[in-house]
């Protein structure tokens, strides 16, 4: 039975490989109704999820999310489920890396300059990464379950090659926007013009009726 499935799989891959398409388009980010500069578009991650699940090849090298100048770089890191990420610390100070996202919680502990730890992210989803010491540090790891993902270039253009034909979801993710999704068939769609509004609602630090902050330090990042 297993051989039969292998055959089907290969056949499908072949078919798929045979029905490969290319998704390309232009991504423009808008904020407050006005377009941002073109190079800002490279902040977003664009990925396509076909209807049929696609086999994922384990990447070899772990991706890197550095801590540099009290910031995670890159701030948004797309990987494939099952991939690994290393968190080197390039700052002279001690840092901590952790996340409490479901299924992908980890804690790298405190460490100074160095290579840091490597963590495998098995479940797809958005993993928010923080530093326990520095509350303003945050990063996103987007654990995808499709290999077809890219970032826009400095001009805002993007291209997804060898996308299997057939319907699927095209998602544009930006941490400051709601996920942009569209069901398309790469084979039949031409170049896309995607506009994403960075309109994810933020709650301003609200104050009590006396105009003072509520008791305790304003905890923007709770966990």
């Amino acid at each position: 039975m297993r051989q039969r499935w292998m055959i089907v799989f290969v056949l499908q891959c072949a078919a798929g490989a045979a029905c490969a398409a290319t998704l390309e388009g232009q991504l423009v980010l808008y904020a407050d109704g006005r377009p941002l500069r073109a190079e800002e578009a490279s902040e977003a991650v664009i990925y396509f999820r076909p209807r049929q699940p696609v086999a994922l090849a384990a990447p070899g090298e772990p991706a890197l999310m550095l801590t540099r100048r009290k910031q995670f770089q890159p701030r948004l890191l797309p990987i494939v489920a099952g991939g690994t990420v290393r968190f080197p610390n390039e700052d002279p100070i001690l840092h901590n890396v952790f996340s409490t996202s479901p299924d992908n919680a980890f804690d790298a502990g405190l460490y100074g300059t160095g290579l840091g730890v490597v963590h495998t992210f098995a479940s797809p989803g958005l993993v928010k990464v923080y530093c326990n010491v520095h509350h303003s540090m945050f990063g996103f790891i987007l654990v995808l379950d499709t290999p077809h993902f890219t970032r826009a270039d400095a001009a805002g253009a993007f291209r997804l090659i060898s996308v299997p034909a057939g319907e699927g979801d095209l998602v544009v993710f930006h941490d400051r926007a709601q996920p942009w999704r569209r069901r398309i068939d790469p084979a039949s769609s031409g170049p896309l013009q995607i506009r994403v509004d960075l309109n994810k609602r933020r709650v301003p630090p609200h104050r009590n009726k006396f105009g003072r902050p509520y008791g305790g330090t304003p905890n923007e990042r709770g966990y």
Partner: peptide
């Protein structure tokens, strides 16, 4: 309302119940 709404675990619970909209994995 503050007692309830400012409770982070409550907010997280609600947020998790809402889902991320990413369509990924356990979403």
């Amino acid at each position: 309302v503050q007692l309830i709404a400012a409770d982070p675990s409550f907010v997280k619970y609600v947020n998790d119940s809402l889902g991320g909209g990413l369509g990924l994995g356990t979403d």
